[in-house]
Write a protein that binds this DNA or RNA. Structure first.
Length: 454
RNA sequence: GCGGUAUUGGUGAAGUGGUUAACACGCCGGAUUGUGGCUCCGGUAUGCGUGGGUUCGAUCCCCACAUUCCGCCCCA
């Protein structure tokens, strides 16, 4: 038997419906924030990721899906969304667009050559946003709020927002230097991995699992200690704006993100869910003001974030959130003989094209079996065809909940269903879902979060 | 890249180096000759992940590989 590639998954059935629902919410939400949907290639030149990510981490050397195509070009399946977007931004000269900043969102599969574990696959689907061209701290707050609002709208309760500031390049370099100076005299107290990190990526020592309890780590200098005045003020603004949006963000100096191109605001949203495993970060992002020019474009301040759809669905499952996804049909058309089957075939098309979800029999089951099948498919109505009745243009329609049935004229069927089948509610999200108001709070967009601000 | 874990039907699973691999659910059919969801009866595995090996003989023992789940490194 041919099996699926390691770390990949087939998503089908109810799980697929949940994915689709999450993605529908994303599309609707992005419509409101007015971010533009963008699709970029699933593979790019290997060089794009090398230059974008930098050579300092393991990512480039051992965790991408690289291949050489038939034209002997070095290609890489995209491991994340930002690089492709930025490449396109530069290539299409979007920095010249009249409507600045450029606000983009994407949703697609990413590929990482890693050993699979809980919440981490080789193929994953990520939704992300990028705002290119504005350095306003309001953008930082808005991007973070998109993440938070998405999780809230979907129904996640236990989420925690961690933010930090790495400062500008000057602050960042100063901090890195300070960390190395701080740890070097104590190198023998660190674990083997951290000894290596000290030179390669000292910020990572801060969230080492082995050394986490060491006083040495707890007392280590934080990024915040090394922010220059300008960076500090900027960070204060971001926090102020988040407050206005009613978002509780915990300043966590351990949030450093892995890549060099981040500066200023970085954030992660965690799911505080029981049994979520080691990969409990739902999504994260930050500001990357140096990436565009690093990839050959003009200096452009940018802010973005990305989140894994699979992890969201997993978190929703763990929290036992009931999603409005149901697998049901409006009517099941039953028949037994060939003559009735012809009517069933035609009628099914007629009703479907008039907007009803219709199932019918394809397995040559007996009438009894068809009843069972209709139940399994959660059919609201049963349409039972009978040769004798058909001669008089009559059909039997039975409500599968009340069990009431009646014979009606075939020509009346569409009107009958129109009257009896309820419309699906359109996707919407009111602000009551975004704010945690009391039951008797009749706030009109000004609930206690806002009150406290004033 | 490193370490641990598991792999029996559509599903949940029991089991043994030796004729026909429990049991349950599901599914199909019948009792009920075109109106069901209860009940009763009957049927339902390309044979135990793949490939080698040990053995007179392996689903059960050994090896390799694949995949699963979990952890480390890394985390975009």
């Amino acid at each position: 038997m041919i099996t699926k590639p390691k770390g990949c998954h087939d998503i089908y059935g109810m799980e697929a419906r949940k994915w689709k629902y999450v993605e529908q919410v994303i599309d609707a939400l992005m419509e409101k924030y007015h971010y533009n949907y963008m699709r970029t290639p699933i593979f790019e030149s290997t060089e794009l990721f090398h230059r974008g990510v930098g050579e300092s981490t393991d990512i480039v050397t051992k965790e991408t899906y690289d291949f050489v195509d038939r034209g002997e070009r070095a290609m890489t399946l995209r491991p994340e969304g930002t690089a492709g977007i930025v490449r396109s931004y530069i290539e299409n000269k979007m920095y010249g667009d009249a409507t600045q900043p450029v606000k983009i969102y994407y949703n697609g599969t990413m590929y990482r050559y890693e050993r699979p574990q809980s919440g981490r696959d080789r193929e994953l689907t990520q939704f992300g946003v990028e705002v290119l061209g504005s350095d306003d701290p309001m953008v930082d707050a808005e991007v973070i709020s998109i993440a938070v609002n998405l999780y809230k709208i979907l129904g996640l309760k236990e989420i925690k927002v961690n933010i930090n500031s790495l400062g500008d390049k000057e602050s960042r370099d100063a901090y890195r230097k300070a960390l190395i100076e701080y740890f070097t005299p104590h190198i023998d107290e660190l674990c083997e991995d951290c000894k290596e990190r000290l030179q390669k990526n000292p910020l990572r020592i801060l969230d080492c699992k082995v050394d986490a309890d060491l006083d040495l780590l707890k007392n280590a200098p934080t990024t915040l200690d090394y922010l220059n005045e300008e960076s500090k003020n900027r960070f204060e603004k971001v926090k102020e704006y988040l407050g206005v949006l009613g978002i509780e963000a915990v300043v966590n100096p351990k949030i450093v993100r892995g890549l060099d191109y981040y500066n200023h605001t970085v954030f992660e949203v965690e799911a505080k869910v029981e049994g979520f495993g080691a990969q409990n970060v739902l999504g994260g992002g930050g500001r990357y003001n140096s990436l565009v020019d690093q990839l050959g474009g003009p200096e452009t301040p940018c802010m973005g974030f990305a989140t894994g759809i699979g992890r969201i669905v997993l978190a929703l499952d763990k929290e036992e959130v009931e999603l409005p996804v149901k697998d049901q049909v409006d009517a099941f058309i039953m028949y037994v003989n060939e003559e009735e089957k012809l009517h069933a075939l035609y009628l099914a098309q007629e009703l479907r094209l008039n907007g009803f979800a219709i199932e019918t029999e394809y397995m040559n089951r007996g009438l009894k079996g068809q009843f069972k099948q209709a139940d399994r498919l959660n059919s609201k109505y049963l349409i039972i065809l009978n040769s004798d009745d058909l001669k008089e243009n009559l059909i039997t329609i039975k409500n599968n909940q009340t069990k009431e049935e009646e014979k009606i004229d075939m020509d009346y069927l569409i009107y009958y269903l129109d009257e009896h089948v309820e419309e699906e509610e359109a996707l919407h999200f009111g602000h009551e879902e975004l704010h945690e108001c009391d039951d008797d709070c009749d706030c009109d967009g000004h609930c206690h979060h806002h009150e406290e601000e004033r």
